[in-house]
Amino acid sequence: MKRLLLALALSLVPIAAGAVEPDEMLADPALEARAREISKDLRCVVCQNQDIDSSNAGVARDLRLLVRERLLAGGSDAEVIEFIRARYGDYVLLKPPLEPSTYALWFAPVALILFGLLAGVIVLSRNRKPEAVSALNEDDEKAVSEFLKRSDAGDAS
């Protein structure tokens, strides 16, 4: 029930556009571009699966401003992300950091491809043995051609 209520409450949040506003933007285009990139990797905590760059929620805007503030203060991209992460945890990172708990995630695609290729190689190597091409004997050949004739007659194509 509580979740239902929350879902209802959240559904009232408009998903209208216009996330980043001009007054948030930095004068330095290079810095602004970095801010945009960082924003795209940070998850908006009140919306569902949205980055803060495209969210118009209040908290997302605050975080965008914070990102820019930290950048202006001379922080590197990693430092800025770390600053936010220190307050909101790994949950805000849309790109999960490579840690023991995410090894399984990050290595899964590689493992899947390798596993698949291995399976493929096994299948192919099984097919190595020379193919026995034995022709049909006369009786069989006759049976088949008789059948084919019959089916040609039946099927007017």
Binding site: V45, V59, D62, L66, Y88, G89
Partner: peptide, 13 residues
Amino acid sequence: LTGRTGIEWGLSG
């Protein structure tokens, strides 16, 4: 007023 303290507390709503 600014919501900055909210961020310090990791506020989500």
